[in-house]
């Protein structure tokens, strides 16, 4: 797996922030879920998606992560 250069990582972060605003509060969960499915499809590898799901859940399930 290649790591993204920081500039691109930052651009992705900014794209995501503005896209959530474009989706609007009522549709943001649907938007984020669709985005995750599209990215899962793009990776073409179930195990990588599983790892990402676990990493994203870590902390949240123990009640430790961000509660926006």
């Amino acid at each position: 797996m290649t790591t993204m250069p920081f500039d691109e990582m930052e651009a992705a972060y900014e794209l995501l922030a503005t896209a959530i605003d474009r989706a609007g509060p009522d549709a943001e969960a649907l938007f984020l879920t669709r985005l995750a499915l599209l990215l899962a499809h793009d990776t073409g590898e179930l195990s990588r998606f599983q790892n990402a799901v676990e990493a994203a859940l870590a902390g949240i399930t123990e009640g430790g992560a961000a509660k926006p």
Partner: peptide, 10 residues
């Protein structure tokens, strides 16, 4: 905005 906050907190 909410989008920036969610992305920042994530």
């Amino acid at each position: 905005t909410r989008g920036w906050r969610l992305a920042r907190d994530a």
